[in-house]
Design a protein around this nucleic acid. Sequence first.
DNA 1: TTTTTATATGCCTTGACAAGTATATACTGC
DNA 2: GCAGTATATACTTGTCAAGGCATATAAAAA
Lengths: 111, 111
Amino acid sequence: MISVFDIIAEPNRRAILTLLASAERTVGEIERRLRMPQPTVSKHLRVLRDAGLVECTVDAQRRVYRVKPDALREADTWLEQFRRFWSGHVDALERHLDRTHPPTRTKGPRT
Amino acid sequence: MISVFDIIAEPNRRAILTLLASAERTVGEIERRLRMPQPTVSKHLRVLRDAGLVECTVDAQRRVYRVKPDALREADTWLEQFRRFWSGHVDALERHLDRTHPPTRTKGPRT
DNA sequence: TTTTTATATGCCTTGACAAGTATATACTGC
DNA sequence: GCAGTATATACTTGTCAAGGCATATAAAAA
């Protein structure tokens, strides 16, 4: 298992990452939320940990996992070379920005 | 082979997509540029075609391939949920925008 | 028409990985 | 210590996909 692309190719791992993107969770919580057998969860978490995409802290017998998505930037960077195709001009990116974060004072003059 | 994540998990396919991102190419050009055996190239192109990530036109015996990266948006959309971690606040996205497209007149009032 | 160039496909082997099951480890409370 | 809870790992098995090689198809050139 090498690249971050391999990591996110697995649907269960994407589900785990998405779940952890909203809040940190214990293994048991992931297991119940995603209806996955516990060993499956643990094994995928192992892969994600080895890749540096999640980390965990110990709370008694539980492990609380949280996402550490820095490595995902590699994928984002790779995708960058295609953004210019996605409707061609700056407006697209602006819409993207607005979708991600509601408009702020940075909105310039209109029309 | 189902999701776009599986498609881009394969390094050779990423290489092909990257090459086609800069310009359209024939199979032979891809073969020579990437030092891949011809059947390997053709097979990966088949996968990419089936996924709608590339298309080709016929020029005599040659096929000219070009990228059609719309389906990659799915991956980009999925990554979106992690962008807020990538240095936490709106400025990060703005820098991202500036990196992608040089500043335009849309820049709002400063300081 | 024969040969050469360009690309696609079929078959086969091999390796990787995910799931299932069982079991090990570790911590808590009695 | 013992029972129960929470998580990790070992082992096996099935599946699937990538690569190598040969070959098929098709168009151009001679």
